[in-house]
Amino acid sequence: MGFMDFFKKKNSGDVAKDRLKLLLISDRADCSPDVMENIKNDIIQVISKYMEIDSDGLDIQITQTESEGTNGSVPALFANIPIKDLKHTGK
């Protein structure tokens, strides 16, 4: 990335991708983006009690996975939560 790129607006292709990612999460979960946002904030709050996490890098998704017991696929909530620092205050 060049120096001047700092001043440039985000590419519209990236904007589209980011919008879609959020949109599809709520489409797949059959709940509104607001609800997803709330889930995300709650997760941040709970995890933050125990460790320092990168809330900007947090990524949650609803995907389909093969279930072990029943046949067919089931929706699953995936959360990718980057940890900045493990606190040991919980002890």
Partner: peptide
Amino acid sequence: DMVKRGDMMSIEDVQEILA
């Protein structure tokens, strides 16, 4: 041309989203 200048999602982007 549009993908190159970042104004269109690339094949990889679409594939990543739809998986």
